[in-house]
Design a protein around this nucleic acid. Sequence first.
DNA 1: CAAATCGAAA
DNA 2: GAGAATTCGATTTG
Length: 565
Amino acid sequence: MSSATNPVIIQSDRSVLLEVHNPLYEEARDTLAIFAELEKSPEYIHTYRITPLSLWNAASSGVSVADVLNGLERYSKFPLPDSVRTEIQQLMGRYGLVKLVREDNKLFLTAEDPLIILEIVRHKEVKPLLGDDDRNDDSQSSSTRAEINPEARGQLKQLLMKLFYPVEDLAGYMAGTPLPMAWRTDNSESEPFALRSYQQEAVATFHQQGSVHGGSGVLVLPCGAGKTVIGMGVMMELQCETLILTTNTSAVKQWLRELTDKTTLDISQIGEYTGGKKEICPVTVATYQILTHRSRVDGNFSHFHVFNEKNWGLIIYDEVHLLPAPVFRATADLQAKRRLGLTATLVREDGKEDEVFTLIGPKKMDVPWKILESQGWIATAECMEWRIPMSKARRMDYALAEEKEKFRLAAENPLKSDKVSELIERHRDDLVLVIGQYVRQLEMLACELDAPLITGKTPQRERDRLYEEFRSGRLRRLVVSKVANFAIDLPDANVAIQVSGTFGSRQEEAQRLGRILRPKQGESKAYFYSLVTKDTKEQEFAMHRQLFLTEQGYAYKIMIEENLE
DNA sequence: CAAATCGAAA
DNA sequence: GAGAATTCGATTTG
C-alpha cells in the first residue's frame, strides 16, 4: 500500500510521476507500461499519462480494472485520488461492451444491451459500414447484433473508438501461407549472431499474447537499436509469408541485405517491389511510395493489388510514423492480417498517432534511448546549442523583412561559419558532419572549410566515393544537406554540427542525433552542436525541435556568443 | 534493353 | 508556411 518511500505520484489529471532513482523504479516502470503512456523521460522523473486509449489497450491484452488499481496503489506514495479510481473504472468498463465476432465467415457486432446496438446502427457515420443484411433494419430494433461489411472492419473500429465504444475484436487473424525460415548459423562472418536482450524482449512482447489479441502492435525503438533484426525475429516466430513496407529504396536494399545475410531464406524467396523491380515473392519488400502511386489515367491506386497478391500472414511497417494517409486507408481494410509497426519516434507533427494505434495496433513496447545508452549499445551524447549574433547590417535587414523571409535570413546568418570553423578545429581528430537545410548556405560553408558537399543532386557514384573516404578516415569532414535525414548509407560520425533545420521538426532532430549515436571503438562519446541565430524566430523553432530530445532525457547546454560590435 | 534524364507528385 | 529530397513512370540515349 501507499508509502512515502514508493516511487510514484498519481495526480488527479491522470498523469503519473515516477522517480527514476528509486529502488522500486524498474518494477513500477514495468507495471505502468501496461496501462499508461510514457510522455516524458528526462533524467530524474518520468511522466506517464493514463488515457482512455492506454486503458483500452491494456484491457485488450487481458488486464482488468483491479490489476490497474492494484498496480497504482502498490507503488504510490499517497492514497489514490477517488476521481482517478472512478474514471479508470468507467473508462475500462466500456471496453468489451461491443464485440466483433466471426460466424460463418460473416462479421457481426454484438452487445448484451440491444440499446447499444441500436445507438450504433442509427449513427449516420456507421450506417454505410454495415452489411446490407436487412436485419440491420430499424424494424429489428431489439437485436443484440448487427452484421458489418468485412472490408470496413478497421474503419468501423476507428469510428466506434471515437464514439467511446472500443470494440473487443474477437474475429481473429488469418495465419497466412506458411513459410519455413530460421536464423543462419553458417554465417560468413565469424561472430555467431544473437538477439540482444531487449530485442528478444521486443519479439516476445509482440508475439506473446494469445493468437486473437497478440497479432498487431507497434514497437518503439531508438535509431541504431536494430529494428530490422526485431522485424526478422517476429517473422521467425510466425513462420509465414511477409510483406515489408519501407520509406525509400535504400531501406528496401537494407532489408534485402539483412534478410539474405541473417536468415536461411533463399534469394529466390525474397522480392523487391519498387520503381525499378516488380517482384512479388514469399517475402516482399516495397516502398510506401509505390503503393500510394495513382494511375495517371483513372486516378486509382495502381499497386494496391500487392496487398491481395499473396496470402500475407504478417505485414511489417518500417518507420510507421511516416505512414502516408492512403496506406492508412488500405491498412484499415487489412484488419485480418497480423501487423507490426516499427518506429523510433511515435511523434507525428500532424498528431495522427491515435490512427496508428487503432489501425496498426497498440504500442507494445517502448525502449527509452537512455536505457540503451546505459547498456552501451549507443554512444553518450553531449548536446550544445550555440546562439550566434547577426551583424548590424543583417539585423537591419531582418527587422525590415517580411515575416516569412525572416526565418531564412536568420538561418543563413554568415557569422555562423566562424563558429563552424572553430568547432571543426576543436574536433580536428574526429569525424565531423556539417548538416544544413539550405543548399546555398552549404555551398559557401563547404568552400570555406574546404570540405566536400553532398546534396540531393550529387550522383550516387560520387556519394559512394565520398562515403568510402569518410569511412576510412582519409576524409574527416563532410558537408551534407537534407539527404542526411534519409540516406541510411551515410557513414557514422561522432560529431554533428547543425547549421540550419526545418521549422521545428522533432523527428528531424532525433534522426540527426541518431546519426552520431552508433558506438565507436574506444571512447564512445558523441557531440551534437546546433547553431542558431540569437534573438530570432530560429531560436524559437530550435526550442521546439529539441523538445523530443529533452523528453528522452538529453540536456542541452546553451552557449551565447556576444555581439562583436 | 539497360542506363541516364526529366517532370510530376506529395 | 517554404525549400529540399525522394521516388515513380515515361522518354531518350548508347
